[in-house]
Nucleic acid binder design. Structure first.
Lengths: 242, 242
DNA sequence: TGATGACTATAATATTTGTTATAATTCATT
DNA sequence: AATGAATTATAACAAATATTATAGTCATCA
């Protein structure tokens, strides 16, 4: 146990924490994840990992960095549909031939590997299913955010979601986390212009909701914010004590 | 065959057409659907079918009418996250305990039944998978619509989506379909106020994009609209000739 | 160390969308 | 046919967000 907690540099650490928060992983699961993580691929920041419409890739485990899933409109407008954070899965497989529904780009320097296969009924498989459910939840939250929240609410709501997810994979320190996104990217996720996002951030800082400087974001009262925004408590975490 | 095409009043007709457009259904599949459709439930317009957070219901086949999937914010703002149309499935099951992520309400007088189980590997199962993929596609389209399109684009884009889906289940006549939504509902799906939606509709009528009167919508040039909006051709339909 | 380019900040102005109010229309019911 | 409620339409005004422009900041690199 000591050896494991000392092994800060294991590439699969975030994935183990994240999936382990969803289901109680067995030694077999852990070994599978470690095996998968022994064969990694790298994508430098701003490179495209998958192009929209491309042949389906295998399900992928993101070991390090952030990935954005985006759509580009004919005139160049960009919408970031969602993010994958270190430790999370992306690129689902379906038995029918489907093409990628979005382009996937590295926002950060990214390290990934092919996700290990999960035996039906295994803990790992349960974690994968919760992961799929989480993706659906995030999409629904995103629709509500973009459709019915104003700029300040959108900013706070998305930062709350990111904080929750980063806490789940042990990538946050308290209510603070490393934010690799530029304001332009963040604006593209929130359906705002960079200028208006910046104005809104200033307002959020003044009102004491958050601080964001040199790539670190702190939410000063996540619970209060979540309440005022009507954010649902999600029940993904496993309920056993371990 | 004659008997089948004459049977306009079969309650499962839309479902058979819709699922049949996704995969070549066998006689067994057709029988299963007919069996399932022999035990129906009714919900009058404006009633709630499932409340957000409720225990998971079994996957459901919508035989008649339209269902909205919605979220309500603490101050009463409503966002319709998506629709289920006659012939389509909703209420997915996952092995882990999940609660309904949205409330589901009948927009119409609704008839539904429990979806028949699909043997793994069967055509029906393929249709279900394509159906799940379609839901994901619709959510992603919705995020892009709400995040990066203006009012006119949102109106046209959503009407195009609805037309495509209704054509798939044989519920459209050419480029015309029956629209059971009030403008208020439609506005709640598009992230607009009813007043602004109405203004936008007037503009769309004047510019010749569409007509919408007495519950019937016609898109005058769906292909041209789709091109200008950058709508993806989706590849869900089966490719065989049958 | 200074130059370069990306990112962030701010201001002035334009445009889109929301709000409130009211009238016209449609629809169901008597 | 008459009533009343819901829906649709329109206008005047307010607020939110976009656009354009410019300046400041920060990291990178020659």
């Amino acid at each position: 146990m000591l050896s494991r907690s000392y092994a800060i540099s294991q590439p699969e650490q975030a994935a183990v924490r994240h999936l382990g928060a969803l289901a109680r992983l067995t030694e077999t699961d852990l070994r599978k994840i470690a095996d998968a993580a022994s064969e990694t691929r790298y994508f430098p920041a701003r490179t495209e990992i998958v192009r929209e419409g491309a042949e389906p890739a295998k399900p992928t485990l993101l070991l390090r960095g952030w990935v954005a899933h985006q759509r580009i409109l004919p005139d160049g407008r960009r919408q970031i549909v969602g993010f994958t954070l270190a430790g999370e899965l992306f690129g689902r497989s379906l038995s029918c031939q489907d093409r990628a529904l979005t382009s996937q780009v590295a926002l950060d320097n990214v390290v990934l590997c092919t996700a290990p296969e999960a035996e039906p009924g295994s803990s790992l498989s349960l974690a994968y299913e919760k992961e799929r459910l989480a993706h659906r939840l995030q999409l629904i939250d995103n629709v509500t955010r973009l459709g019915r929240m104003d700029a300040r609410e959108r900013v706070c709501d998305l930062l709350l979601e990111l904080l929750e997810r980063l806490q789940r994979s042990g990538e946050a320190e308290g209510n603070t986390f490393a934010m690799p996104l530029t304001q332009e990217c963040f604006a593209d996720a929130l359906g705002l212009t960079p200028v208006h996002l910046n104005r809104t951030l200033q307002a959020c800082r003044k009102s004491g909701d958050l601080s964001w400087r040199s790539g670190r974001v702190t939410l000063h009262d996540p619970a209060g914010l979540a309440r005022s925004l009507g954010r649902r408590r999600n029940r993904l975490q496993r309920e056993d004590g371990g």
